[in-house]
Simulated assay, not measured.
Amino acid sequence: MTRNGKIALAAGVLIAIAAGLWLSELMIGGAGGPGVVSSSGKAQVGGSFTLADETGATVTEETFRGRYMLIYFGFTFCPDVCPTELGIVSAALDQLGDKAEKVQPLFVTIDPERDTPEVMARYVTLFHPRLKGLTGTPEQIARIAKAYHVFYRKAEDESSSDYTMDHSSIVFLMGPDGEYLKLFPPQTPPEKMAEAIASYIE
């Protein structure tokens, strides 16, 4: 398969995953379209985890109890998708105003080989002052990705020693008790994201 064919295949996989997750939320009980649906049932998304934040400190799901978690999985070498989604998260938090104090944004790497705490520390400051970057061992990342049904895989370039990462691009909103509330598909407008988050906080 040619390189362009592989890229097209990976893009198709990501689109299918995003569509599947969105449709699954609609089946849970939401209505209204991307970024504005609400859920009335319980989805098996999330769970316990142990990771390291950008300072190197160990964090678990209990670290963030009492706050809403806005979680995005990606990697710092991502050329466009991750910066775009993190920019949307940052803009949504800004639109929330004082309510944003109740929300903890988290950026979880799916590339722990390169995304050390030091790298994450430099990266998260590019987006929002409250954004925390989480990394860990490959096994720890695999566990949390599985809990959130996040797809990722290394995509190596046959013509060089470099690589990129194929991954699903979904923002998850979790409640103060750690329970799944909703997901935001790629490129959800920040005002819609902020509106949906605020509806839970209120």
Rank of each mutant, 00 (worst) to 15 (best):
L173N: 08
T188N: 07
R67M: 06
Y148N: 06
S160A: 09
E179Y: 02
S24G: 13
S168C: 09
F49R: 11
E156N: 08
P190K: 03
S199F: 12
H167F: 04
T164N: 07
V36L: 12
G56A: 09
Q187D: 10
D80A: 05
G46D: 00
T125W: 01
F75P: 02
A91F: 00
R130T: 11
G29A: 12
G178V: 01
R130Y: 00
G66H: 05
K42P: 05
T84H: 05
V103D: 00
G29T: 13
P117G: 07
A100E: 01
V119C: 04
S38R: 15
T58N: 10
G178N: 04
G47C: 10
A194K: 05
K146W: 00
A194V: 03
S159D: 11
Q95Y: 04
F77T: 12
G133W: 06
F73D: 01
Y152I: 06
D80S: 03
M174P: 03
M174V: 11
A43I: 11
T55S: 15
L181P: 02
G136Q: 05
S90M: 02
P176H: 01
T2L: 08
G33L: 09
S90F: 00
D111T: 07
S169N: 11
L134W: 01
S159R: 13
V103W: 03
Y152E: 01
F73E: 00
S24N: 15
I7S: 07
P83D: 00
I71E: 04
P79L: 06
A8V: 12
A142L: 11
M27T: 13
M69W: 09
D177R: 13
A10F: 10
R114T: 03
S48R: 15
A92W: 05
T58K: 15
S38H: 15
R143S: 12
F49Y: 15
G66I: 04
T164F: 10
A147W: 09
N4V: 13
T137C: 08
A198K: 11
I17H: 14
Y68H: 13
Q140V: 09
P186W: 01
H149C: 05
G97E: 01
V13C: 07
E118A: 15
A142Y: 03
F127P: 09
H167D: 02
F75I: 02
E195F: 11
Y68P: 04
G136D: 02
R114Y: 02
M174H: 05
A147M: 11
L183G: 15
S161M: 09
V59F: 08
G41M: 11
R65C: 00
M120V: 08
F49V: 10
I17L: 12
S169Y: 01
A198M: 09
H167S: 05
V45C: 06
Q104F: 01
L70T: 01
L183D: 10
E139W: 04
V103L: 08
T2W: 00
Y200W: 14
S24E: 14
M165I: 14
S168M: 09
V37F: 12
F127H: 09
S199T: 13
G41N: 10
V124H: 04
E25V: 15
I144F: 11
L96N: 02
I201H: 02
G20E: 08
I144A: 12
D53Q: 11
Q104M: 04
P83Y: 02
G30P: 11
S40Q: 14
